[in-house]
Design a binder for these strands. Structure first.
Lengths: 218, 218
DNA sequence: ATAATTACCTAATGTTATTAGGTTGATTAA
DNA sequence: TTAATCAACCTAATAACATTAGGTAATTAT
């Protein structure tokens, strides 16, 4: 047909991989859903693995292109990290199938590290490192905060949220409580202005809300 | 031979899965390394997937048994979390093949959530939740710290460290910088004793965080 | 001693990824 | 115009596995 065959294959594969998993999806499943024979698929991709990698490759590339623009004009390291998180989480929510493949099916693959997807993901995360370094030299973050470790905390938390959301079949919004989680992480980063802590307004006489755990704050 | 056939199979599978990945390891690889025919393996396991799950199942069960004892007698939530982290990281370093299967090859599997391994991992993590709750009610942690979110930060960071270490072929020690990372996370948890902060030896003249705008509730 | 059971085996069977080797119809080169 | 090339497919192998069928020989139970 037209030149959209490759896209049809990718779209079919994306759905099927995310839905049934990589192993349980057959080439026949994919080529049939794309309206082709098995053999024809091999005109577009070297094989099943190649196809698996092609999907997130495209997505991560898009992310990378968008990121600069998103952060443009935002002042302050904490604000930038915040923007990064909100932006990323929204992208994940809008492309859950791509995210699922990246988070659940790609790490399994031995070629992952050698792959371009991986280096692009690293580039994405290196933005975080830069922001943290900026925050440290401006004094917004603690002077003794090691940037690479702070990045590990940030990325680790973020990835954990996404992974669990995907495993739980995205049955809730990723934005639930995002604000609070971000605050917890940031509290570990920020300088301690020897007084007036943003969060000390409660200073509960403790023991009071022993068992409150669902709905918090205010 | 003796009654150790099942163990031999598990040991072979563990090595091969961790080394070549689940997909690229064949039943023949495993049964041959265990000194058996393919068919004999099916006397011990229902199939390849069943075998994959049997490995971490055993490991996680052991972890769970050991944990109570490890935490016994430790006072204070932060100290308990510290002990948990150090204990867990050491267990991972001592059983990297099991860890690799849990972290890289298991999530892929669609049966994972329905599986007992998953519920045991959850039970492991629920200890963390309990400790954090204890820390909050004792006043050691901030009163407005939502325990489940704090757990996400803790677990997320921990899992991130382990995952990267595994992906990088365990080419360094997981304990490098563990102390510093732990401190960063704890700083987000702990109450701010309106003075004398452990890390404030720098006490930057602030002014840098003039532009904090992030829609701060309350 | 005989029946049942254990711990294996070899040889199918069926599913899949991948390849060989076309066909068809359009485009280009002579 | 006609012959050659190429693109975009196809059907039908091939070969690698996972899994099953059906058997054997040795051990254990009755």
């Amino acid at each position: 047909m037209k030149g959209n065959t490759k896209e049809r294959i990718i779209e079919s594969a994306k759905q099927l991989f995310a839905d049934q998993g990589y192993q349980k999806t057959t080439i026949m499943d994919i080529s049939r859903q794309a309206g082709l024979s098995d053999a024809a698929l091999y005109e577009y991709f070297r094989g099943k693995e190649d196809l698996l990698i092609a999907i997130p490759d495209l997505w991560v590339r898009e992310l990378l292109e968008d990121l600069d623009e998103q952060l443009f004009g935002i002042k302050g390291a904490a604000n930038k990290l915040r923007k990064f998180l909100w932006w990323y989480i929204r992208r994940v929510e809008h492309a859950p199938l791509d995210a699922k493949i990246v988070y659940l099916h790609l790490k399994t693959n031995s070629n992952f590290l050698a792959n371009e997807v991986y280096s692009n993901v690293k580039r994405l995360y290196s933005y975080i490192l830069d922001i943290i370094e900026e925050g440290r030299s401006s004094g917004e973050f603690r002077a003794d905060l090691m940037p690479n470790l702070a990045r590990d905390v940030f990325v680790g938390t973020m990835d954990h949220l996404v992974t669990r959301w995907l495993l739980k079949d995205r049955s809730y919004s990723l934005f639930d409580n995002l604000e609070n989680i971000f605050d917890i992480v940031m509290d570990g980063f920020k300088s301690n202005p020897s007084s007036g802590n943003r969060r000390t307004h409660e200073t509960i006489p403790l023991a009071a809300e022993a068992d409150v755990q669902g709905s918090e704050k205010c």
